[in-house]
Design a protein around this nucleic acid. Sequence first.
DNA 1: CTATAAGCGAGACGGTACGTCGCGTCTTGTA
DNA 2: TACAAGACGCGACGTACCGTCTCGCTTATAG
Lengths: 204, 204, 204, 204
Amino acid sequence: MSTTRAPDPARRNPQTTAAILEAALDMARESGLAKMSIEGIAARAGVGKRTIYRWWPSKGAVVLDAWAGELAARLHERLAAPHTGDFEADLKLMIKDAWIGTIGETREVYASIIAEAQHDPELAAELRKRLIAPATALVSERIRRAQADGQVAADIDPQRAIELIYAQLYYRLLVAGLPTDEAYVEDVADLALRGLRPRGPAGA
Amino acid sequence: MSTTRAPDPARRNPQTTAAILEAALDMARESGLAKMSIEGIAARAGVGKRTIYRWWPSKGAVVLDAWAGELAARLHERLAAPHTGDFEADLKLMIKDAWIGTIGETREVYASIIAEAQHDPELAAELRKRLIAPATALVSERIRRAQADGQVAADIDPQRAIELIYAQLYYRLLVAGLPTDEAYVEDVADLALRGLRPRGPAGA
Amino acid sequence: MSTTRAPDPARRNPQTTAAILEAALDMARESGLAKMSIEGIAARAGVGKRTIYRWWPSKGAVVLDAWAGELAARLHERLAAPHTGDFEADLKLMIKDAWIGTIGETREVYASIIAEAQHDPELAAELRKRLIAPATALVSERIRRAQADGQVAADIDPQRAIELIYAQLYYRLLVAGLPTDEAYVEDVADLALRGLRPRGPAGA
Amino acid sequence: MSTTRAPDPARRNPQTTAAILEAALDMARESGLAKMSIEGIAARAGVGKRTIYRWWPSKGAVVLDAWAGELAARLHERLAAPHTGDFEADLKLMIKDAWIGTIGETREVYASIIAEAQHDPELAAELRKRLIAPATALVSERIRRAQADGQVAADIDPQRAIELIYAQLYYRLLVAGLPTDEAYVEDVADLALRGLRPRGPAGA
DNA sequence: CTATAAGCGAGACGGTACGTCGCGTCTTGTA
DNA sequence: TACAAGACGCGACGTACCGTCTCGCTTATAG
């Protein structure tokens, strides 16, 4: 029914795709999403603009693809098995793995993707689906186990607990505009845990 | 010493300034900072582009001026006297005043300003100086008093306490992309207060 | 070697080109080159400014292209065969064809092109190459034949003879700012011919 | 009746006027009328734009004032007394004085004024009145005397004779874009004189 | 001998146009 | 039919001048 036929993914050239993603990620690292252009990515990748528009709806989508693709690989390794039994230790490890080990020096790329997402609902949805939801799911699972163990108060919504923790990191990234080191991550977890822990034997 | 002389603020036309700020705020409300242009603001305000460039370095600066100006006026009224003595009540009132009463329906404007600030350090600095720092100072003061009263644990850095609270709201605005109602603000405060209150037998 | 690659003329859109030239010529006729703008040509032709800048270096070049293109067509018809054998008749016919029949009512366009050429050496060169040189060559050839026939003094440089004739017309156009009719062209030729004809007993 | 009162010439500041004219002439010499701006003249002269607009209608008028003022002074000296009795010698001297001695190295300034005059009828009129008419009058007078002496054919209109001569120089300046040296001036006069002289005793 | 009306410097202002960049769509030629 | 290349209509960029205006300051008649 549509006049403009959808492209056939089977005929997509993998080398071309790789060149575009690499160029996009390099440029995002160097100067951030806002200062990039599709035109620039095409030139750097040695690719026609048409080819980019064929496979991605916006520059944000290209960069998200490039950046989240890299990230997903690294995350899978790291979040394999943090089963210590000690919730505090596990939590801190997970946050460090995610926020320092994985995002690490691409934090400004991430910030610029979130910025772009403020006026690009599709990008926002994609970001949540591909990155935030999966990461949240893992932590949520661990929190639920901690509640079963009695290490986290049972009346707390795990989703809200995650927000209490992660929101601090996003605040530092997006509002304070400051870098995040290990000490800060520790502090973030400690402050959140004050509120998450059960109120002692009397409170139980 | 500078070749391009700075314009003399005394010769600035107040009507023109008002027209620009009004146009900018209207447009920001309607479609967000990202879809605006200096060209558009100038046209809507019935003003030469040059006049805008003379007094503001970027469209972000114009919108911040327009938006924060309006806000500051409203905030002064609201944050006059929240002295209940009950920290929880005071805190909730302050947050509601700030986040619902003041930012309120301009939340998307605020989100787009923060987005813009990700690649505009001057705008980020201005935003922190004009809006975040003053608001933070007021809350910080109230927390300190609560610590003196024994309503908040003495070993907590008030600045970090503020982050623990506000970060949740920013997260919802920028990352979750969801609106904030009174119930959510209550929940935000309750969750944070769990961790802020003094522990141990005395607190029970 | 050049960083900004030259555009490929093969990919030039003939319709677009025609629309630009037509708009440019119309506007030049209506109000003269000085009051035109690239912006205006683009708007009238329904074309992006970039497209004009891609193919022409300046508005003068566009108008010259449009005007001289039209002219060349008209001139080819007219200067087909003025072989009367009578130099005076031939000369007068050539001048009338060129200055009245061809330039005719576009004399102000021509004047404004020459004006523009005063501060645009490239335009001046192009004007001489495309219009003045070819026209001069034809007349020069006829003068040479007249010298062989003994109708023009042999010791006169044909190029200077042309200047003696045409300069009067350019003077009237550019300095006196007056129109040129047939009677004036006759007078121009007569006055010049006084000096060009062979002197002495043979010529009497 | 008019709302905007005419300025009072008696209160005009001579230093200011001089500064403007000097700046204008310098700039015209350096880069030509076309590349100048009222704004630029004002800045260079250390003068408000208003002051220029008060006394001159256009930048062309300013430059003409500056250039022709200088020239008039120089011309008066030179054209004092060329009464040799020999018309050819007198004519050549007059042309050399005017075209080389007086216009000389400001020939490009003159060319740019004529260019400007193509789309500024007031400037054109002023130019003819202040410069061309007076110079023409002097030469015309001399030609008339030569006709009385029998050195120039009596049936020639002196005005047309002047055009025959000067047009060649204007052509070289405006159309050919070439400099004029003494040899060329000689040639111009020689070529014109061929046609101006009486046709020998038989023709009388 | 003062006051009041210029001239003047400075430059803000609403505009128009500049020449450039990037958008997203398109067409052309190659593999 | 995917792709490199890039022309195209379009909208916006940030800058230069336009010609008009308003502001204080100074100068120089006219009451």
